[in-house]
Every structure is written in C-alpha cells, then in structure tokens.
C-alpha cells in the first residue's frame, strides 16, 4: 500500500446566499495516495470545483480538515502557504481565460519559477522553460508568443507547463480538456500521462465527462449534491456500479456504438437545489429503489471489499 498524500475528513464548505445556506460541499472524506490518478465525476453544481478549491485552501472550509502529507493545511500560516502552493498545482478548465493575454509564454511560465526561487537568472529560466515546452511537445520558438497567437490546445499545454514548472507533488485538473476539440484532447491527455509517469506525480481530475475520466483515472469517485456517493477502483466502478445514482449516470452517458441497444433513461427529474437538499439520502427523490429509511436517515460512506466505498442504504 502506497503512502497517503492527501486526506480530507468531513470537509464542508457552505456559502451564504439570499435564499439560504448553499451546502456546496457537505462532508467529504477522501484519501488520495501518492502516485495515484484520481478522477471525480459529477454533474454541474454538484460541488466538485468547490471541493478542490477548498482542498487547495483557495476557499476556507466551513468545517472539517484537509491533511496534506500528514499536516493539516489549516495549520499553515499565511506566510507558509507559499510552500503549499508549490506542492499543489492546478490546471484550469478554460485555457483562453487562465492565461494572461498580455504576457508571453516565457513570462507566464517564468512567474512561478521566480516566485518559488527555482530559477533566478535569465539563463536558468530559459533552460527550464525550454525543457518544459519540450515536455509538452512544443518548441522554444513558442516562448515569445502571446496567448492569442496560440491555438486552444497549445494554450492548454502552456497551462500544464506552468503547473509542472514548480515541480509539484499533486496537480489538480479542473475539466482540463472540456474546452478543446477531440483530436486536441487526445494529445493533452497523453502528454499529461507521460509527465505523470516521468515525474511520479499525483493527479486529481474533476470532470463531468465520464468517458474522459475512465481513460485517465485509476480510482474514480462520484459526487452528488456536495457528497461523495461512491468511490473505488475504476474497473470495478465501471463494470459494476453500486450506487443508484452512479448506475443512472453511467447509463445516461451516450455511447458511440451503433450496435448498442438503446436503454431507457432511468434518471428522472433534475438535481435538487443544494440550498434545501432533501432530508435523509439527498438522492431519494430520484432513486428508483427508495424506501422509508432513505427519507429519514442519511447513509454513511460504507467500506466494502476491494477498497470500494458507497453511501447507500442498500449495502
């Protein structure tokens, strides 16, 4: 068993809104091991982006703890946070918005290198940036370009190079390919996987695209209304999903196979508001297997065999 790199315990993040408290993240327990590629799927508004922002302490948690390498990240003082930022990097969803349009590629990647004191002289910066660009399948000549001179795929590769620059332990990737075309998506995913293996990195993907997560992750989690409903090794989760939401979600994914027999949709209705989530199991109004207990008692994330965990009263 490999080392635990990141752990959350009962992590909650509530926002105040005029309509009431929004329970965006509502008690998440997660364990991410060193070297793992973890993929979290969920529909929009389920809290996956808020979750990683809270883990990164870009947002202060309402309740609960995040341990990174065994240390509670809330115990980091302001001046120590810089160190944490070097160890946890992030790649954002929209490469058109996450690069400063007035900075060249050189400026963009040299920033984190300078801030963390990884390279100071121009010569050192050049050497490192060229190497990072090569890792991402780009050339030294791209250094002088501005974002508007790059294609969407190239911009996202710069976004990844910037994250790799600080030699982090873990990279959080928030829908890294959803703004890109399929042919470009492949290239990014392959480069990411290569970098992960060469640098012994840990990845934390979040996406609504189950087909993307199934290609890149070893361990998969499913989130619904601020809670993790199921988590486990990818193969087991895909071949035998346990939670009724996971089953419905996977079934809803259109499959590019003309011979597939089309199944009727199981997931009826829509995701309820996180302001007033239903009592008991928050999936109960849409669940085909609902019984009385589900409407009263919230199911805990139960440990099953093969490192699987599921939050459902059926198990």
């Amino acid at each position: 068993m490999t080392d635990i790199l990141l752990e959350t315990q009962g992590l909650k993040k509530y926002f105040n809104s005029p309509a009431g408290e929004v329970k965006a993240v509502d008690g998440v327990d997660l364990i991410i091991r060193q070297g793992q590629s973890f993929g979290l799927v969920g529909e929009s508004g389920c809290g996956k982006s808020t979750l990683i922002r809270t883990i990164l302490r870009l947002l202060e948690p309402t309740e609960g703890k995040v341990f990174f390498k065994g240390r509670d990240i809330n115990s980091y003082r302001k001046n120590e946070l810089l160190k944490l930022r070097k160890e946890m990097a992030m790649v954002f969803q929209d490469p058109h918005l996450s690069l400063n349009p007035r900075m060249t590629v050189f400026d963009t990647i040299s920033r984190p290198l300078k801030i963390h004191g990884l390279a100071r002289k121009k010569q050192e910066l050049l050497v490192q940036i060229v190497e990072l660009l090569h890792t991402m399948g780009m050339q030294a000549e791209h250094m002088v370009r501005f974002p508007h001179e790059l294609s969407g795929g190239q911009k996202q590769r710069i976004g990844v190079a910037r994250a790799l620059a600080v030699e982090p332990d873990i990279i959080f990737l928030d829908e890294p390919t959803s703004a890109l075309d399929v042919s470009v998506q492949t290239k990014i995913l392959k480069l990411l996987e290569k970098a992960r293996q060469e640098r012994n990195l840990t990845f934390f993907f979040i996406s609504h695209d189950i087909n993307m997560i199934r290609v890149v992750a070893d361990v998969m989690g499913v989130m619904y209304l601020g809670k993790i409903v199921e988590i486990g090794p990818k193969e087991l989760l895909l071949s035998d999903p346990l939670h009724p939401y996971t089953q419905g979600l996977f079934q809803a994914v259109p499959e590019p196979d003309p011979d597939k027999i089309i199944q009727e949709v199981q997931l009826e209705g829509e995701v309820p508001s996180p302001i007033n989530p239903p009592p008991g199991c928050n999936f109960n109004p849409r669940c085909p297997f609902v019984w009385d207990l589900c409407k009263e008692v919230e199911p805990m994330l139960k440990e099953l065999e093969d490192e699987r965990r599921v939050a459902c009263h059926k198990y």
């Binding site: 809803a252 259109p254 009727e264 949709v265 997931l267 995701v271």
Partner: peptide
C-alpha cells in the same frame, strides 16, 4: 446540458 438531462432530451 448535463449528461442525465441530455439523456432525457435525446429520449
């Protein structure tokens, strides 16, 4: 649209 909503729409 989200996948589950997309599935309803396709139906």
């Amino acid at each position: 649209l989200d996948v589950s909503i997309q599935a309803q729409f396709i139906k």
